[in-house]
Amino acid sequence: MSRTLGEIVEACRAGERPEYDDLRLAVCCLDIMGTFDRQAMDKLAEAEREAKRPFMLTSAVWQQEERHSRLKRMLAKTPCEVLGASYNPDDPEVQKRRAASARILQAALEGKLPTQRGTAAKGAQDA
């Protein structure tokens, strides 16, 4: 697997059928890109709500330029290079961290975190 993320995306758009693992890792890369985009939009929305003066993270122009630069860098790398060791879904340690994160998220959604004790029951009573 030595194709860059850009080559994999272009191959798909050209009607080719890249290898399964290339596609699987490319999806993980594009998910990371989506996370960066969401975080950028959250920063911009927060700055707008708080009437902050545009500066770097709170500047739409800066965010647009940074997104373009980040996408260009990502597309020039292989999916494994983009993901690195910390996000490689084939690494058992990554899967352990994901499982722990999923358990924490589930507990938070159910109001079972130590900082939430009593809030879920109270919220149910208010409904």
Rank of each mutant, 00 (worst) to 15 (best):
A47M: 04
A124G: 00
R67I: 02
L57C: 05
K96R: 11
T78E: 05
Q39T: 01
R53G: 03
D42G: 06
E16D: 15
M74V: 02
P79R: 04
A99K: 10
E19R: 11
V61D: 15
A121N: 11
E81T: 03
Y20T: 05
E46V: 08
A26Y: 05
D22W: 01
E110G: 12
E16F: 07
R103M: 11
L83V: 06
E7F: 01
R24C: 04
A14K: 10
F36A: 14
P92M: 06
C28A: 15
T58V: 07
K52L: 15
S86E: 14
C28P: 04
D91E: 06
K122V: 12
R67M: 02
H68A: 10
P89C: 00
E81M: 06
M74P: 02
S2V: 13
T78K: 00
T119A: 13
A107K: 09
I104F: 09
A108R: 13
R98L: 05
A85R: 14
A124M: 07
A124H: 05
R53Y: 09
G6N: 05
V82C: 07
R17I: 09
R3A: 06
V82G: 01
F36P: 05
M56Y: 04
D90Y: 11
A11T: 04
E46L: 14
T119Y: 01
E19S: 10
G84H: 00
P89E: 01
T78F: 04
A60M: 00
Q125A: 15
D42E: 11
C80R: 15
A60K: 07
P18Q: 00
P89H: 00
M33S: 06
L57T: 10
R24A: 09
E19K: 09
D21E: 11
